[in-house]
Structures are given as structure tokens and as C-alpha cells.
Computed example of a mutant assay.
Amino acid sequence: MADSTATMLEVEVAFALPERQRIMPLSVPAGTTARQAVAMARLEVAFPEYSPVIFREADLGIFGKRLRDPDAVRLRDGDRVEVYRPLQIDPKAARIERAADERR
């Protein structure tokens, strides 16, 4: 019987800016969490303009579905972990600002 801890999964970690994106293919051990995969992808090297803290604390999702607890979600073969950028402006505040501009 094969040791299940030696099983490797093929996953991707994705991060995008408006002008560029990076999708990092990774082979990770079975049992790797979404947060661990982001650390393994070393996105701070590809995006030095962002603090490594951004990647350690960012909201994460898998195929567009936000994860409630990325430190607990174990990846499956073929998953794409998405690292979400922090919002520049609160969406509610943006709507209020647009409405105020339209009234002027």
C-alpha cells in the first residue's frame, strides 16, 4: 500500500493586477492547505511592489469561490487558488461617491 503522504497534487496559485497576472503551477503534497500553497508560490518575488504580508493575509478563493478558512481548506488535484487583492475603496463608499457626483 502506497504512503498517502507522498501523493503529490498539481495545483495553481493565481494573482492578478489590472495590468498583469501570474499563475504559478505547483506540485504540492496531499494535505496542503490553500494558505500553504500561496506561501509555496512565493508571489512576493513576482510582485515585489507588494509587501509579503499582503500574500500571507489575503482573502483566498478556489475557482472564484471565496474560502472562509483558507488555513483549513485542503487542496484537491487541479485546484486553482486565487489570491484576492485588498480593496482600494469600499464598494459601498464608491456607490455613495458616484451618486453624489451624479447629483452635482
Rank of each mutant, 00 (worst) to 15 (best):
M1Y: 15
M1K: 14
A2Y: 10
A2K: 08
A2H: 09
D3S: 08
S4Q: 05
T5M: 03
T7Q: 02
M8S: 07
L9A: 00
L9H: 02
E10I: 03
E10W: 10
V11A: 01
V11L: 07
V11M: 03
E12S: 09
V13S: 04
V13D: 02
V13G: 00
V13P: 03
A14M: 04
L17R: 14
E19T: 08
R22K: 11
I23S: 13
M24R: 12
M24A: 07
P25Y: 00
P29T: 00
A30M: 07
T33S: 06
R35M: 02
R35S: 04
A37H: 00
L43F: 00
E44N: 09
E44R: 14
V45F: 08
A46W: 09
F47P: 00
F47G: 00
E49A: 15
Y50V: 01
S51H: 15
P52I: 06
P52Y: 10
I54V: 15
F55V: 00
F55D: 05
R56P: 04
R56F: 01
A58T: 03
A58N: 08
A58V: 09
L60Y: 01
G61V: 03
I62E: 11
R66Q: 14
L67N: 00
R68W: 06
D69W: 12
D69A: 13
D69T: 15
P70G: 11
D71R: 10
V73L: 13
R74A: 05
L75T: 01
L75K: 07
D77I: 08
D77F: 13
D77S: 08
G78R: 15
D79I: 06
V81I: 12
V83Q: 01
Y84E: 10
P86S: 11
P86E: 09
L87G: 10
L87N: 07
Q88Y: 04
I89N: 08
D90T: 09
P91V: 11
P91Y: 06
K92D: 15
I96W: 02
E97I: 09
E97G: 03
A99L: 11
A99Q: 10
A100D: 07
D101C: 04
R103D: 04
R103N: 12
R104I: 09
